[in-house]
Design a protein around this nucleic acid. Structure first.
Length: 888
DNA sequence: CTCCTCACG
DNA sequence: ACGTACGTGAGGAGA
């Protein structure tokens, strides 16, 4: 079956340009857009296996659309020169890859694609259109689907007529009417002012088309009617502009579009010229011309590896080879490493790969192998060694000697790239593809461990992959100045986290159940009362049903809407409370129900029957800022702000009699970090004198003395301080303080008048991010912000706030991680029995024996405060008690 | 599997 | 004109 792919060249290269971090060849020429385009193209070829393909480009500046409307695409920002110069590079590359390309004077890529897809349609051929432009949806048909590129160039949504109906309840043809009514700012198509997507959809569902709407205005009234009548011509013209021209005079034949695979003779040299080494390797092409094997632009075939499945008979052979082994992979099932089982262990040396099934690994015959596994002087690389350590631990197999964790390194190299599994990394580093775990094991209920041969081969390929990545990552870490961060902070921390998690924190089950009974009783009382007042029973946990009761039955005013209906969140309910007594009760119900389901029932399920403790799992590779996250259960969001919830903390107790819970938290760490990196004199002054920072801010912003600061002024100052850390916007502050945007903006202005160093930092960091494409923390942790130069206001603003926030939040994360490493060493050096149990972003929790309490009360804050030397002091406040609640 | 809501720093 | 505060994880509802 023939399959034709039509690619909107201009659109994709644009998106690739803004989605990719800046990337240049050794001569300093930007190549990022070409690179992004090419990776997408190769993936398409691999996944779709097209028999025909073209890339269409816009030709020239003036198209037939300008004849009727000169302002078409007016007001658009000029194409950045860094992108312009990549067009010829891309066209040359496509030629060398053997991918046909089309452009024709005075028409746009859309029109070429529209014309070819019409012809293909008429001949019943299968077509896939690739673009980021929603307008393309008008071309969908029985045989034609559209792959809409969403985020960056990696995610696509596939649309056929069916999906368009589901999403908009429109036919593909009506997409044109939609744009006719709503216009398109980026193309300078006016549409009807005041009509956005929502209104346009409503009108089209009622009248069917632009013409239908204009003919039917008599059925409408008010502003809407006026607007439509006044702008009838605009609507008609906009529709015309949005219509893809499907009769372009093209002189082409079906044969001109044939694609039989990459041109092996020229593809290699072309990619080499652009210095796309990873793509060269991925395609196993050589820079000098035709390559030996498997270069169809298809996935690199799975490598032929020398794999030995180990049993008792050949175990000795493996043991002799151990000195040459540096990479391993521990295969486990399930997400929770405290509960999952180890299935097997793969080991890799440069020459050979081995797989040891779990049964053998646990047997006495494997003593020597296990000794090697637990030997900290034999360095081992792997993917997610932290998880492996835990899973092995619960099977009674100790692990030590983690040298290079490929997952952790990948996270440091790009912390925003979500969940980089080994498969993603093979693509990135041009290594042979792995089968997806899903294909080997099946998923969900169908999960099944395959036969030994298949299993061993799959897992051994993973350790082989690790082996292939380590050196490359080492070099990248050096190039990005993150080697120190990796070796001296993150790798040591990963072992410390594993220790904390194995240790767990004791939770008093009976007390928790007792608390649950209390909540149960309160819930049933509240529920009865609420049903009675409302005069009906319904599911209080359903926002949908609750909305129905509040806004329809009781007729309360609608404050806020969500995508799917009425909003009933706490903010809305607070506003509704004065109107009806039941609202307060609902708020109370929500509070208690949350405590009951998440914290009582949720925690009960997580208390290990084996240890009587809760063993969380810290994830070191999730948060883009460098923070940790906690799962199964999340122990970083145990209630504290409200007394009812805070009681939950009473169930967390020391695991040995006579011991105490000791906790210390950093005071205002983020604002202290800000004082340091902004070098703002007044902010530094405040911390050097150890003043209450919010009161001090209020004094300076309102120009009053300390005793003139009332609680309201302090509250405002506190909100401004928060806002500053988050990357302030007047809108955000106005929401938080419930004031007008203007007042908020005035506040911010006053703040910056006083704290000019902070203003300078905020300005500078954004400029720096725009220039470099990333921001860093004090310890050189990096976060890329590809959207910092986006033309879309929202995307750009978000990236700008992130640029302001990440160095602050991230440096604070660096500091507490340092403190953990130092503290671990301090405990070891002094041979103390005290144990580190939890980290909650700016707080560390320990359990300590009575005879170490006095020492720990001074040691802990000392180590935390001395973790990193800043231009202002760090401050840690320590407290202790017989449980976590008391340690406040 | 997505949405809403809410717990934390 | 645009429509947000930064970073997470979990539970329940309703498709």
């Amino acid at each position: 079956m023939d399959k034709l792919i039509l690619i909107d060249g201009n659109n994709i290269i644009y998106r690739a340009f803004f989605a990719m971090p800046p990337l240049t060849n050794t001569a300093g020429k930007p190549t990022n857009a070409v690179y992004g385009f090419t990776t997408m193209l190769l993936r398409l070829i691999e996944e779709q296996k097209p028999t025909h393909m073209i890339v269409a480009f816009d030709a020239g500046k003036v198209t037939f659309r300008h004849e009727g409307y000169q302002e078409y695409k007016g007001g658009r920002e000029k194409t950045p020169p860094e992108l312009s110069e990549q067009f010829p590079m891309l066209k040359e590359l496509l030629r060398d890859l053997g991918v046909p390309q089309f452009e024709i004077g005075s028409y746009e890529a859309d029109d070429i694609i529209g014309t070819i897809s019409r012809e293909a349609d008429e001949q019943g051929r299968q077509v896939l259109i690739v673009s980021g432009d929603k307008d393309m949806l008008q071309l969908a048909s029985e045989h034609t689907t559209i792959a809409l590129i969403r985020k960056g160039v990696t995610e696509v949504e596939i649309y056929g007529p069916e999906q368009i109906r589901e999403k908009y309840n429109l036919t593909p043809e009506q997409i044109i009417d939609l744009k006719g009514l709503m216009g398109d700012a980026s193309d300078n198509i006016p549409g009807v002012p005041g009509v956005g997507e929502k209104t346009a959809l409503k009108l089209l569902h009622q009248f069917g088309s632009v013409e239908g709407v204009l003919a039917g205005t008599s059925e409408l009234k008010g502003k809407m009617k006026e607007k439509l009548e006044a702008h009838a011509e605009d609507a008609v013209m906009s529709k015309k502009l949005a219509t893809i021209h499907r009769e372009v005079p093209l002189e082409h034949t079906w044969e001109d579009m044939v694609f039989t695979g990459l041109n092996k003779d020229t593809a290699g040299p072309a990619l080499a010229k652009l210095e796309f080494k990873s793509l060269l390797e991925r395609l196993s092409l050589s820079a000098n011309g035709p390559a030996g094997t498997g270069a169809e632009g298809d996935s690199t075939p799975e490598a032929e590896l020398d794999i030995t499945i180990i049993d008792e008979a050949n175990l000795d052979e493996l043991l002799t080879k151990l000195p040459g082994i540096s990479a391993l992979h521990v295969e486990t099932n399930g997400d929770n490493p405290h509960r999952s089982e180890v299935i097997g262990l793969a080991l890799s040396s440069e020459e050979r790969h081995y797989f040891v099934p779990i049964s053998l690994l646990k047997s006495p015959a494997a003593d020597q192998l296990r000794a090697w596994l637990s030997d900290e002087t034999t360095p081992k690389s792997g993917y997610d060694l932290h998880r492996a350590d835990l899973a092995l631990h619960w099977q009674g197999i100790p692990f030590a000697g983690a040298a290079h964790d490929v997952q952790l390194a990948a996270y440091l190299l790009d912390p925003t790239e979500a969940n980089q599994n080994l498969n993603d990394l093979t693509a990135k580093y041009g290594l042979p593809h792995l089968s997806a775990d899903e294909d080997v094991f099946g998923k969900g209920a169908k999960y099944k461990i395959p036969e030994l041969e298949v299993l061993g081969t799959h897992v051994a390929r993973k350790s082989a992959t690790v082996l292939g990545i380590v050196q490359k990552q080492q070099q990248e870490l050096i190039d990005t100045a993150m080697k120190g961060l990796f070796e001296d902070l993150e790798m040591p921390l990963s072992r410390i986290l594993a220790d904390m998690e194995k240790q767990g924190i004791a939770a008093h089950k009976e007390d928790l159940m007792e608390l649950g009974k209390e909540f149960e009783w309160q819930i049933s009382k509240l529920v009865t009362e609420i049903y009675e007042i409302c005069g009906t029973e319904f599911n209080l946990n359903s926002p949908k049903q609750l909305g129905e009761i509040l806004f329809v039955k009781l007729g309360l005013p609608v404050v806020k809407k969500t995508k799917t209906g009425y909003s009933t969140d706490a903010e809305v309910l607070e506003k509704l409370a004065p109107y009806h007594d039941v609202v307060r009760l609902i708020l109370q119900y929500r509070t208690i129900a949350k405590l009951q389901s998440t914290y009582v029932e949720g925690l009960l399920k997580e208390i290990s029957p084996v240890t009587g403790k809760v063993h969380t799992f810290y994830r070191q590779t999730i948060a883009a800022t460098g923070r940790l996250s906690s799962q199964f259960p999340n122990l970083q969001n145990i209630p504290i702000r409200l007394e009812e919830g805070r009681k939950i903390r009473k169930v967390f107790v020391p695991s040995e009699p006579g011991w105490s819970i000791l906790a210390a938290d950093y005071s205002q760490i983020e604002l202290r970090v800000l004082a340091h990196i902004s070098d703002d004199e007044r902010l530094k002054e405040a911390f050097l004198q150890d003043m209450d920072i919010h009161t001090k801010t209020a004094m300076d912003v309102f120009g009053v003395t300390a005793d003139q600061v009332d609680s309201n002024m302090r509250r405002s100052a506190k909100a401004v301080n928060f806002g500053i850390v988050y990357g302030i916007s007047d809108y955000g502050l106005s929401q938080n303080l419930n004031i007008t945007r203007k007042e908020a903006s005035h506040f911010i202005e006053q703040y910056f008048e006083v704290f000019q160093g902070v203003r300078r930092y905020m300005d500078d960091i954004v400029v720096e991010a725009k220039k470099k494409g990333y921001v860093t923390t004090l310890l050189e942790r990096r976060r890329y912000l590809p959207e910092i130069n986006a033309s879309n206001f929202n995307l750009r603003s978000f990236a700008e706030r992130t640029a302001m926030n990440t160095p602050i939040q991230g440096t604070a994360a660096d500091i507490i991680k340092l403190a953990m490493v130092h503290m671990d060493k301090a405990l070891f050096d002094r041979q103390l029995k005290s144990r580190m149990l939890l980290q909650v972003h700016d707080e560390l929790v320990f359990e300590v024996p009575a005879d170490e309490l006095e020492l720990m009360k001074t040691l802990l804050p000392e180590v935390m405060e001395g973790a990193l030397k800043l231009s202002v002091p760090l401050k840690a406040e320590v407290s202790y008690g017989s449980n976590w609640y008391e340690a406040k």
